[in-house]
Deep mutational scan, measured.
Amino acid sequence: ITIHVNGVTYHFDNPEEAEKFAQKMAKTYQLKMEIHNGEFHME
């Protein structure tokens, strides 16, 4: 699972971890999250 946050790329093997991380980042930084081709993009 690949997550892009403001141009920084994070890779996770565990989908649950990826989702937790994505939600935490979105909440902490008030980010808008989109999913493209199974990759999370946040800005």
Rank of each mutant, 00 (worst) to 15 (best):
M42K: 03
T9N: 05
K32W: 14
E17C: 15
L31A: 04
E19K: 12
F21D: 00
E34A: 07
A26E: 09
E43R: 14
T28V: 11
H36Q: 06
I35F: 11
M33L: 13
G38P: 02
K20T: 10
K27P: 11
A18T: 01
I3K: 01
I35Q: 05
H4L: 06
F12K: 00
F12R: 00
Y29I: 04
A18N: 00
T2W: 13
K20G: 04
E16V: 10
H4Y: 12
E19T: 12
A18S: 02
K24R: 12
K27D: 13
E34W: 14
E34I: 14
G38C: 15
N37R: 03
N6K: 13
P15K: 10
D13T: 11
E16P: 03
F40T: 04
G7T: 06
M42G: 03
E39L: 04
N37A: 05
I35R: 02
H4K: 06
H11S: 07
F21I: 01
A18W: 05
A18G: 07
K27R: 08
N14F: 08
E19Q: 12
H41W: 14
K27E: 13
Q30T: 03
M42E: 02
G38Q: 03
M33H: 01
I35L: 08
N6E: 11
N6M: 15
I35M: 06
A22M: 10
K24D: 08
E43H: 13
F12E: 00
M33Y: 09
H4R: 08
H4G: 02
I1E: 01
E16S: 09
H11N: 06
Y10Q: 00
D13A: 11
M25L: 09
K27H: 06
Q30P: 14
I1P: 02
G38Y: 05
F21N: 00
N37G: 07
G38T: 03
V5A: 06
Y29R: 03
Y10L: 04
N37I: 09
A26M: 13
F40E: 02
D13M: 10
A18F: 07
D13V: 11
E17A: 10
E17S: 10
K24V: 12
M33F: 10
F40V: 11
M33P: 01
E39M: 06
A26V: 04
M33Q: 01
F12N: 00
A26K: 07
P15M: 13
N14D: 10
I1Y: 10
E43F: 15
A26Q: 06
H41M: 05
F21C: 13
E17Y: 05
K20Q: 10
V8D: 07
M42T: 03
H4C: 15
K27L: 12
L31K: 03
A22S: 03
K20M: 10
M33T: 03
K32Y: 14
T9D: 02
M42D: 03
Q23F: 10
N6F: 15
Q23A: 11
N14M: 06
H4N: 04
A26T: 03
I35D: 03
L31D: 12
D13C: 15
E17V: 07
I1D: 01
M42V: 04
M42A: 05
Y10K: 01
P15W: 14
E16K: 10
Y10R: 01
M25G: 00
T9M: 11
F21E: 00
F21T: 00
M25S: 01
V5C: 15
V5E: 01
E39S: 05
M33R: 00
E39H: 10
F21V: 01
V8N: 09
T2Q: 06
M25Y: 02
F12L: 01
H36S: 05
T28Y: 15
T28M: 14
M33N: 01
D13S: 12
